[in-house]
């Protein structure tokens, strides 16, 4: 590769003193000083969070209020910092969601460990875990920042569900129970 040496253009006297540049710089900062401020007064004003923001991971319910997580523990497996800990449990026969069979007895996410990578959301086969728009996590102790199932569902709320897998399953079961074709 040919190297072409480009000479610097010679400086004139004023440029050598650097003073025009210094004064120019001062003018820029002065102009900036007089411009309107861009600060967001945080606790009072909140930024708008884009839809694909990766905030605190939360658990969501489907439109019927059923907890979507079936504690398959794939998120626990994939979580790079091992922030997720699930205690699996089965669903009682008397429960209206008995057809789902399995749900987490407890679902812990250690927010101090979480790195908000979103891999749990990506891996979840039931679309039960979402990194939503909550970004400000605080607490007075380490224990407080281990979010348990109740808290995670409270944060997550209900999301419109595109998949009616379990509903269809229940319908089919009911149809069979009613003596219909199976």
């Amino acid at each position: 590769m040919a190297v072409k040496v480009v000479d610097r253009s010679p400086l004139n006297f004023w440029e050598k003193t650097y003073m025009p540049q210094v004064l120019g710089g001062l003018k820029i900062t002065l102009d900036n000083m007089l411009r309107p401020k861009v600060t967001l007064q945080y606790p009072e004003e909140r930024p708008t969070i884009p839809d694909n923001y990766r905030g605190v991971p939360t658990l969501v319910r489907d439109p019927n209020g059923r907890e979507k997580c079936v504690s398959c523990q794939l998120c626990e497996f994939v979580c790079p910092p091992k922030a997720i800990r699930i205690t699996p449990g089965d669903i009682d026969d008397s429960d209206e969601n008995a057809h789902v069979e399995k749900r987490p007895k407890d679902f812990e996410i250690n927010m101090l460990r979480c790195i908000y990578c979103g891999m749990c959301q990506e891996v979840c086969p039931e679309e039960a875990i979402f990194l939503q728009d909550i970004y400000s996590v605080s607490g007075y102790s380490r224990e407080e920042l281990v979010y348990h199932k109740a808290k995670l569902y409270e944060l997550g709320g209900t999301l419109p569900d595109q998949h009616y897998k379990w509903d269809r399953k229940k319908e089919a079961e009911e149809k069979v129970a009613a003596g219909g074709h199976h």
Binding site: S71, C72, Q73, E76, F77, P88, G89, D90, E101, K102
Partner: peptide, 9 residues
């Protein structure tokens, strides 16, 4: 063992 733990762990 049912629903106790995933085998990959």
């Amino acid at each position: 063992f049912r629903f106790k733990m995933r085998v990959w762990f």
